[in-house]
Design a protein around this nucleic acid. Sequence first.
DNA 1: CACGGCGTGATACGGTCGTACCACGAGAGG
DNA 2: CCTCTCGTGGTACGACCGTATCACGCCGTG
Lengths: 209, 209
Amino acid sequence: MTARVDHEARRTQIAEALLRIADTEGLQSASMRAVAAEAGVSLRLVQYYFTTKQALLLDALARLRDQLQARMNAWITAAGSPPTPRSVVTAILACILPTDAESRRITRTYSAYYTLVLNDPEVLEKHGAAQPDILEGFLAKQIRAAQKAGDVDSRKDPAMVAAGLLAMVNGLGSSVLGGQRDSDEAMTVLTYHLDELFGPSQRSTTLRT
Amino acid sequence: MTARVDHEARRTQIAEALLRIADTEGLQSASMRAVAAEAGVSLRLVQYYFTTKQALLLDALARLRDQLQARMNAWITAAGSPPTPRSVVTAILACILPTDAESRRITRTYSAYYTLVLNDPEVLEKHGAAQPDILEGFLAKQIRAAQKAGDVDSRKDPAMVAAGLLAMVNGLGSSVLGGQRDSDEAMTVLTYHLDELFGPSQRSTTLRT
DNA sequence: CACGGCGTGATACGGTCGTACCACGAGAGG
DNA sequence: CCTCTCGTGGTACGACCGTATCACGCCGTG
């Protein structure tokens, strides 16, 4: 009872087309017809594989989430052979910042979805909540580990520092996307604060490609 | 040669209606007809006072900008009789955070516009650029003054600190709007970092109403 | 008093949207 | 061989969009 065509491949193809449009022209331009044209299929097919538009939006959002997750994992492992808390934190935060083409795409698309969620909060419920909470906890844990290793002032509150850093990176990303700041400038601001948090800047900035 | 009706009043009435819709239902729901209904006028009138939709959007954005400016000024003067750098910085940052109804409205509406600008950058040009750059410079100046007064570690880079704080508040605001965080929690994170920046927390948190 | 422009209403037009409906070829199962 | 379901195309429908057009009362000015 093998399917005559690979459903998952087609779904991926269509969802990727939507993400591409959301990145380049915004979600409000991602009509069913536009997605179909971008994916090179007929409108009927988009309807067939995703019966409704909301289903398509949700599916694409899940894929975007997975892509960001994969990117973070890749950056963490690429940060250092023995992953120190500092390298892990640096990798996570730097990888969210819209520096290269991929992160720029992901960040742009995410903020497109953000506006959507703001005025239609039920979308969030169907989408297994957000992972920023988990991410924030993970960051806090890394900072706590750094404190035990003596790399971070033990008087600092790891949860507060993690929340502040994550929010700062988020805000920096917004300013880069908005064109108020260069991505290099944003990176400078981030590394400045990381250097303030951790000890003297031991060559941990060598994670740039 | 007095106009038969107060043009500016009508324009305000209509623009406010748009901002109200942008706050509650998002900008994508702010159609000409919806704005007309919200303002209690006919569709023709909206067209009459703002010939095109883009003009309406731009005018409303300018009003929103003025409202935020006014709010910041009010919070600065309400912060303390002799305005210290710390109280000024605290007032500015706290007033951006979506804590009360007004700031929540402003922040929500701004982020609605943000998505609009992302995929139509020419809007920004017609709108005299953004003031965050100016704001950031102002914050840096305040921090530099605090350094001279000995309230802030002189080794810190005022521009970096200002950029970081502003981005952090922006990110915190996003998380509050997104429902990931309580507004009180965001305020806690902000005051924590302000307390870390300035000396011990001298009762400057008494600016809450 | 005439009149011309201002403020306003109603309605029309072309377009795009999400979704639904109908038809049809092909390959699998009886 | 028949039949049924899957995958696909084309097209229609109703709604809403931004904008344009026509018509008409009112009031200040000549």
